[in-house]
Design a binder for these strands. Sequence first.
DNA 1: CATCAAATTTGACGATGTATCAGATTATAC
DNA 2: GTATAATCTGATACATCGTCAAATTTGATG
Lengths: 219, 219
Amino acid sequence: MGSQGSQPGRVMAQTGRVLGPRALKTRQRLLDATAQLLRDRSVLDISVVEIARKAETSPATFYHYFKDVEEATLQLARQAIEEMPAVLEQIDGSWDGARGFDTARGIAEAFLQHWETHHAVLLIRNLAADNGDRRFQKVRRDALAPVLERLADRILEAQEASHVSRTLHPFAAAAALGSILEKLSAHAGELAHRGISRDDLIDTCAGILFQVVTGRSLD
Amino acid sequence: MGSQGSQPGRVMAQTGRVLGPRALKTRQRLLDATAQLLRDRSVLDISVVEIARKAETSPATFYHYFKDVEEATLQLARQAIEEMPAVLEQIDGSWDGARGFDTARGIAEAFLQHWETHHAVLLIRNLAADNGDRRFQKVRRDALAPVLERLADRILEAQEASHVSRTLHPFAAAAALGSILEKLSAHAGELAHRGISRDDLIDTCAGILFQVVTGRSLD
DNA sequence: CATCAAATTTGACGATGTATCAGATTATAC
DNA sequence: GTATAATCTGATACATCGTCAAATTTGATG
């Protein structure tokens, strides 16, 4: 998970050198500073100088560890993956009867949590991925694939039990559901103006999730 | 729909002056150059100098018309709205029986078209909107609201006919469907690797759309 | 068609940011 | 305490930003 791919498992500086404890600390300080700035300002106007200032070091040090701001962001996106297991546990819950809806709710909640924590970084990750950047596409895939694959499995099961139409491609449907979940936190802010509460939103997303995954209706 | 809000309907320079024909041409040249650069590079690394070069003018001229690159993008996002009616026509089609699925397909196709045309600009619009920028939120709302409202109406009708669960909040559900549609074009690229064709994807999205809007299953 | 005021464009510039070294500083091992 | 490797930074060349005041173009008017 280093800056370069040449020495897997070890974090490295731009020079390729493996980092010792002090360097790792400095590097993390730079990452933290980046994350914080990303939260405040927009991606479009944060600078290496600012990051360095906030991390109480110099721009030169930043460039020692990262090629540019984008690469630091990539790193932050990698760190964000580590929370996904919380979502996975939810999916493995029961999808039978009324419990199925609770499972769907659990997924929506866990996703919303994930996004509220990493909002800024995940937005950039998706922007870069949608723009065709391979590195960000991979990080995004690594984060979502386990979730989507399990969802797709459930959909496939439902199709085999003739609950769900074969018109839906299981993985494509899972990916579509993923885009709802990813937008949850953004919606939460905007839909509040229409008198739609956070719970309304979670219930609605969970409802769609449940309906598509199981093929059953709610009520 | 000018650069400032103070003189609605007239395009203005940063100074507030109303623009004549020559100025309008220059301004549009700058917008076109911006759009083209946005297509090639990422937002993160385009500069005013480059835009000016491509538009065969000087940076100072750019600043005469726009506060910054973001504002030029905002303008491009406004121009993109004008194609939405094509989507609206689709929604007003019939949702009965097998025709309903065709209507859903039509919507998905129209959306995909829209996104393939304005990819780069729409990505930035959504990024800025999700980041809390009011101006971009408004543009985004103006583009989507008519679509979402009509979808919400259909869902409400289906609820009144007891086809769809009241657990779904009509507008929230419409917004969720919107996020699927908006992600369509991004997915198209990434899911191709999994052997999922563009048609699979459209059918799947249309399927989800149909299912949520009408409450009926497919097959 | 010459003149002039308004409209439009730009050259020039200080401030700030980028990206890169070579060399200074600090930690560690012996 | 000295040597060696690891880590950090000052200095720097170069690009971009954003703002003027001034130059150029337009086209309306006598």
